[in-house]
Design a protein around this nucleic acid. Structure first.
Lengths: 344, 344
DNA sequence: CTGTTAGCGCATTCAC
DNA sequence: GTGAATGCGCTAACAG
């Protein structure tokens, strides 16, 4: 592949390899003249440094790994796009480690791929790891920044999930709803209720003086399909039917809205729906939601990681950033209808 | 970062570095005993080879680049997940090059990132490149496999877009529709009509003996939001209203269905909608679609790339694989209503 | 500020 | 089948 090396550039520029390296990488002092010559020669030859060689020699690979449990979900794909843009602007590649599939694939990533010394740092997105997996992850030894999903001792950018869900549910309460359902997912154990969206929902409901009705809580997976299925169940029986649904994500909420329509119910007249996310499709579905500013979270996380990579290893300290959320009211929520007897 | 090197493994195994390298990489013949000792020593030490060093020495980096114009779209995120899984099973990392943003970012990827000699091969997903960009891409010099979107002289896995759209539209024609709208995107020029979805739509309409009505063709971007906006326009005027919409993608179709509902129209009673994709949400929206088997496309593309990487550079030949599409009929399409005069 | 020297960790010659 | 030597392309010390 007789590709052009730094040596070729040095010869053409009439400089030493070391000077060219310094000039092109910006590390170390070089005269303006040397810099200009190096850059011109590089341009003329179409030289681009081999990052593998540079990595080997310097220990920095200009590459960050991003570990994700999914790609095909709005939150994750949005984080990927945003972080990729931020990292690229600083010259960093982004290597994607998709944890999909089973335990085998997960272990392969955690115990092999991540250890190949190919990455300077890692962005861990909403990872749910058991203790052993967490230990594997930390063993990688590079700086880690988590987005949504906390690992003890690791820098994190996230929102207050509890507060977000409470905000969403309080909006329903303020409208007059009392029979409010929740569609969400299992927390990481009961103790976690104090920090989860389900917990925030429950808190808001109780604060309204209403008792929690277990039948109004549907826990499952994260997808629109799950939201659809859960809402179909919740809304099927007119006598049990909630007047509002607080969903733990916008995708669940969109599924719920679709289910309601398929049941011949009008949103928001027959049932109000609120989500959490700030999904791009919120407008199309008129979805009232708590915007968690995902792009902001991703930007902060990538920026934080970049900053940590620029620091000396021993001066790095775990940082916890919390991004504020914001209620966005659209047309999927309104006050509940007056009781039937009055309607007729 | 006193990390464990192959030398440590060699010492522990009582073998030479060369033998351990051969044993662990599987290249070259090694006695069963040596292999076992190497593997055990490696395991005990938690040794994972530095892929940067291996790349430098061997010229193979066990990393493929994936160039995508978006991540946050069903087709792309699905391709990413699928290809990532296939590649990981063969020990390959996946580095993501997101072409989002403007010309600057695109050029950075094409003229810098991809040239860093970090990747053995490249998966190019539905890239729309101008001539200069295409030249940049080819200059990278690694094997390329395109998924959906053809580059002359480059291996490709795709569907027949023209046939897919014709199939979708023919379904509407067969149901009795004659006033059929199209929501899609601009082709790569007029000449491309023979190969595009818009072309397939037009062909099916004409084959039904119906003249193309330019006002029934809405060309724009790819998103659900665009489909929503386009359908709102198409369906706004009852007198001009089409009885069916053939959308160039499922996301556009889902937008169209949502728009119809917001206008108080029933799908499929008032307007039928068909898409192309096989989107995961097809079930939830009852969407009739032409399934393009995206996971199959991605698997074939990744597999093909892997095979090419295993071949000698001069024996590699461009391959063109076409994945068959399949009409999936759900509840978003039906025969058009009889004319109004009869209804009353 | 610049050139020379010495590896980074590994795969791969070539001998044996 | 195995070991010793060489170099992948670059950066980092070290002198000058």
């Amino acid at each position: 592949m007789a590709s052009v090396t730094i040596k070729d550039v040095a010869e053409r520029a009439g400089l030493s390899v070391a000077t060219v390296s310094r000039a092109l990488s910006g590390r170390g002092h070089v005269s303006e003249a040397a810099r200009a010559q190096s850059e011109q020669a590089a341009r003329e030859l179409g030289y681009v440094a081999s990052y593998n060689a540079a990595s080997l020699a310097s220990g920095r690979s200009k590459n960050v790994g991003m570990v994700v449990p999914w790609v095909n979900r709005w939150f994750f794909s949005t984080v990927i796009e945003t972080a990729s843009t931020v990292l690229a602007a600083e010259g960093y590649d982004l290597t994607l480690y998709y944890l999909g599939g089973g335990k085998r694939e997960r272990d392969l990533v955690l115990c092999d791929f991540l250890l190949r010394k190919r990455i300077d740092g890692m962005l861990a997105v909403a990872l749910e790891l058991d203790d052993a997996e967490r230990a594997d992850l930390l063993r990688v030894g590079t700086p880690i920044v988590c987005i949504g999903g906390v690992i003890p001792g690791v820098s994190t950018v996230s929102i207050d999930d509890f507060a977000a869900a409470r905000l969403a549910t309080e909006h329903l309460v303020a409208l007059g709803h009392r029979r409010i359902a929740h569609i969400g997912w299992e927390g990481a154990g009961d103790f976690a209720l104090a920090t989860t969206r389900q917990g925030g929902y429950a808190d808001a409901v109780r604060a309204a003086g209403v008792e929690i009705v277990p039948d109004l809580i549907a826990l499952g997976d994260f997808t629109t399909q799950d939201g659809y299925a859960a809402a179909k169940r919740l809304l099927a029986d007119p006598r049990l039917r909630p007047t509002a649904i607080s969903a733990a994500s916008d995708e669940l909420a969109i599924g719920a809205i679709t289910a309601a329509r398929d049941l011949g119910l009008d949103v928001p007249r027959d049932v109000s729906v609120v989500g959490i996310d700030g999904h791009d499709l919120g407008d199309v579905f008129g979805l009232t939601t708590v915007d968690q500013h995902v792009r902001e979270q991703a930007t902060q996380a990538a920026t934080l990681l970049l900053r940590q990579l620029g620091q000396e290893p021993d001066t790095r300290e775990p940082v916890h950033a919390e991004v504020a959320v914001e209620l966005v009211v659209r047309s999927s929520t309104m006050a509940p209808r007056p009781p039937r007897s009055v309607t007729g």
